[in-house]
Nucleic acid binder design. Structure first.
Length: 424
RNA sequence: AGAGAGGUGGCAGAGUGGUCGAUUGCGGCAGUCUUGAAAACUGUUGACUGUCAUAGGUCCGGGGGUUCGAAUCCCUCCCUCUCUACCA
């Protein structure tokens, strides 16, 4: 959530930034917020005065009672009845205004940084880095959805029977590959100084709000009515929310965590021709890295996350590229976001496998996550997160790119984790 | 799930209707002492809102109520602990 003070002090810039994110009603919404906010403050002033007056009289009554002057005390009580009504009305007005401001404010996406390119969708993203050669496969090369059948390692029909579409069963070497990748990613994160956590995979509403999934993405999460809980779409949510309502000591920053979790996404209305096989699932596995930093350090932290992900992809020997997302393609809460795509040789497509975002103070403001600066003032932190990494599309690319007559040949980095070199 | 107890400032722990935003201890910070440190002693130390700065206002698990006045009384929800039951 954006800070009103920023919208007020940098009104024009804020409007331009929101427009870059294709937020259509930027002008009118900011006008509305500033107008309502001013009225709110006025109301608060009146309300406070009225409450102050009432407090004073209450105190006087208390003293009179103590002094045994009952009649005087009784007569003072009469003074308060009108004051009570006034206070109550002002309080109601204040709460309405507060909610009105909140309702508009909560709809505003984060302001993208200067560096974010203009654009409306995927076509406007900037490729900023590319690594590795796209493998040339022979004619009878198979896409991963055929390879998983050929080697009987991932079973969609079985998952369909047990749960539904998008919930595959990993079998044999397929299951071991999952476990190997998770361990590989977690170990690499540990080596890079991320302390490991295993978070809950269900979260409450406050957590969903804290990282920005609620109310924006309500329909995209699985929801358990009986207990009022959501299944996490990413470990970012529980991990970042560990620091909700916390004032962090400056010497403890930056905070770096990594965590593995299954991720659950309803993906309502997003199925089509390009989402076959492992390209889109309702449940998948992911190792997430999260950082919480002082504002001045977040860009460096972001870069370090990008470098970490690059290193992972290089160890996995996958050709990849990095995109700087344009305003229109960025997520709701991000101020700057890099997507990583691997080349999947049989599909002849780039697949998104990771996304590293800097949220600036957007999440911190919702989370009320702050630190004490040099002057002893509470200041919002910056939060960042990135996938390191999401498994299914990595698996898709590993299978497709490394198919040989002898089977699927795994990259060296994984062999010590799987215990086998070939899936055959 | 049943019975009981309880949720207070970074932590521990007082406070049961009127200078209580809250005694006290620990921790933190500053100072005295010391070559330096420790110990001891002294002072200081919650968050939010608001103001140029004061002032003022709000917050004792969440929400609602009673009252001139609520941390304290009532209702409701949530959570924690102990015992019993059940169980990976």
């Amino acid at each position: 959530m954006l800070q009103i003070s920023i919208l007020k002090e940098n009104k024009e810039k804020s409007i331009q930034a929101l427009l870059k994110k294709n937020y259509k009603s930027a002008i009118e919404d900011i006008e509305t917020i500033l107008k309502l906010e001013e009225e709110k403050k006025k109301t608060q002033f009146d309300m406070d005065n009225s409450l102050s007056e009432a407090n004073k009289i209450a105190k006087e009554i208390g003293e009179l009672m103590k002094a045994g002057k009952k009649e005087e005390a009784e007569s003072k009580k009469a003074l308060t009845s009108e004051l009570k009504i006034i206070s109550k009305n002002l309080q109601e007005k204040f709460e309405i205004l507060e909610k009105q401001v909140f309702d508009v404010l909560v709809k505003l996406p984060n302001l993208p940084y200067e560096a974010v390119p203009k654009g409306f969708g995927a076509d406007d993203n900037e490729v900023i880095f590319e690594h590795g050669n796209q493998p040339v496969l022979n004619e009878n090369a198979l896409p991963h959805w055929d390879l998983i059948k050929k080697y009987d390692i991932i079973d969609f029909e079985l998952g369909n029977k047990i749960a539904g579409a998008g919930f595959p069963v990993y079998k044999g070497k397929g299951a071991k590959l999952q476990r190997a990748l998770i361990n590989f990613f977690l170990d690499e994160a540990s080596n890079a100084g991320y302390s490991e956590v295993q978070p809950p995979i269900f979260i409450n509403k406050d957590s969903g709000f804290g990282t920005g999934q609620l109310p924006d993405k309500d329909g995209q999460m699985y929801y358990m009515n009986e207990d009022d809980l959501y299944a996490i779409p990413t470990a970012e949510v529980p991990i970042t929310n560990m620091y909700r309502d916390i004032i962090i000591k400056r010497e403890n920053l930056p905070i770096k965590h990594a965590g593995y979790s299954p991720c659950f996404r309803r993906e309502a209305g997003s199925w089509g021709a390009h989402v076959r096989g492992l390209n889109r699932l309702h449940q998948f596995d992911k190792v997430e890295i999260v950082q919480i930093t002082e504002p001045k350090d977040s860009e460096t932290a972001h870069q370090s996350m990008v470098n970490h992900i690059k290193m992972l992809l290089e160890k996995l020997e996958l050709p990849y590229r990095i995109l700087k997302l344009c305003g229109g393609d960025m997520s709701f809460g991000a101020a700057l976001c890099f997507d990583f795509e691997v080349y999947s040789a049989a599909q002849k497509r780039w697949l998104e496998v990771s996304s590293a975002s800097n949220f600036d103070t957007f999440q911190a403001n919702r989370l009320k996550c702050r630190f004490k600066n040099e002057d002893g003032k509470s200041v919002l932190v910056h939060t960042l997160n990135g996938s390191a990494m999401a498994l299914p599309r990595i698996v898709a690319a590993l299978l497709e790119n490394n198919q040989t007559p002898e089977g699927i040949k795994l990259p060296k980095a994984l062999v010590s984790y799987t215990g086998f070199e070939f899936i055959n």
